[in-house]
Amino acid sequence: MAQHQSTTRQDADHPARQLVENRALFTRGFIGLMPLWAGAIPVGIAYGLAARDAGLSIVETQLMSLLVFSAAAQVSAVSLLDTGAPTIVLLATALLLNVQLLLLGLAAGREAPPRWPGRLLGAGFLTEGAYGVAVGSGRLTLPGLIGAGASMYVAWNLGTALGVSVGDAIPNPRGIGIDLVAPLTFLAVLVPLVRARPAAVTALVAGATVLLLARIVPTGVAVLGAGLAGSIAGAWAAGRIGAR
């Protein structure tokens, strides 16, 4: 009887214990990502500057960071908006730039299979940095991943707000070359990814293709075509040369 009562109490304690454990994992993930704020905030500032330079209002600039939460997609969108690219091209480019997140979601889902509420929440905060911190803590857990992602979300939106404020203080942003911020931001994300020969082949083929295509089709379409050609070349090179 006493044993039965003890078991029942343990069962009742289980959700409470789980909640405490999840909270601790979330906090650990949140704090674990904070060193990456040093990278996220300046990129957020760069996005804020680029978005204002491309003609987005303060509200639109911040709304994009609050809802889209993707440096590459957002900077590409404001950069392509500036060239007058059609909406479908903007969206397709944003999707291509985030294909990496599909792969990270696959890895996270295989390592810590979540239920639907966990999937929905985890997907909202999935970024490369958050995944890296969550894996780096030893065992990937969904609360850890969400904590790290939430930390990145705060930094990204803080950086955007700072960028908007700085941008509004500059009277003629284009006159001092603020439009260079977008390609520099892409470079800052791109360079660490090019670690081996197949990645270099990818970059070379994509770069050459976009220069050729841009002569005959609009810039946005050329970017899409080059993205596809480069990735196929990279996968081919990886098959021939070996690891990425």
Binding site: T93, V99, Q100, L103, P183, A199, A206, V223, S231, G234
Partner: peptide
């Protein structure tokens, strides 16, 4: 899976080159 892994590198490169060439 391998091809998808190279899509961001290719797209980012294309955006850098297109942005610089279009200045």
């Amino acid at each position: 899976e391998r091809t998808l892994g190279y899509v961001p590198i290719a797209t980012l490169t294309a955006l850098v080159v297109a942005s610089l060439a279009g200045r």
